[in-house]
Amino acid sequence: MLNIKGLKVDLEEEEKSILKGVDLDVKAGEVHAIMGPNGSGKSTLSYVLSGKDGYEVTGGEATLDGVDLLDMEPEERAAAGLFLAFQYPVEIPGVGNMTFLRTAVNAQRKARGQEELSAGDFLKEVRARAKDLKIDADMLKRPVNVGFSGGEKKRNEILQMAMLEPKMCIMDETDSGLDVDAMKLVADGVNALRSEGRAFLVITHYQRLLDHIKPDVVHIMSEGRIIKSGGPELALEVENNGYADLLAEAS
């Protein structure tokens, strides 16, 4: 599924190296978590994989099912099955949530050579998915993320994920700004999407989310590198002892 080898990335504007050789291998059906202190490069990794401007790849590669991701436009990566749940979902005044979802779903279907969903089929699908995430009709009608609470924005991300049915889901601090109930709702949404053919990369600061979304592998990232990988117990260790021991161990 997602294969990253020796990925090195600089900030385009300033000559600052953020990722200094990241290796990662996420297989279909697996859930990987990345934890790490602030500024370790976790979010950068998610942006670079999804194709955001402002970063320069200076070495290494990233492939999704063998296809080079880094060469593609963001929309092509999405059509290839990559999805990023944003840490800060963007507000888009003037674009209805429903219009946004339908445009995205149909753009991806078109890119894959599939027929566009009819308005009726789309509506049926979106209503069922929204209900599971406790997203009401009003939220679907409102402009994308405008006036949404933090929890509503994150649930809206998961709704998009559910509608777009990506192969590889990257979640960038989806738990930030969520209360316990909202986190449970989001985690249930993600767990419902877990399947043999789909993989998740969950970026988080806290063990709490991983209580709900059980990872197969946990990676610790620091200063642009993965310094340690292990099972779920690694997350517990971070929760109890912080990063200091792990960082000392690595250096």
Partner: peptide, 10 residues
Amino acid sequence: FYLRSRGVPE
């Protein structure tokens, strides 16, 4: 970028 990341061409 948000729209493009959802698969909508530029």
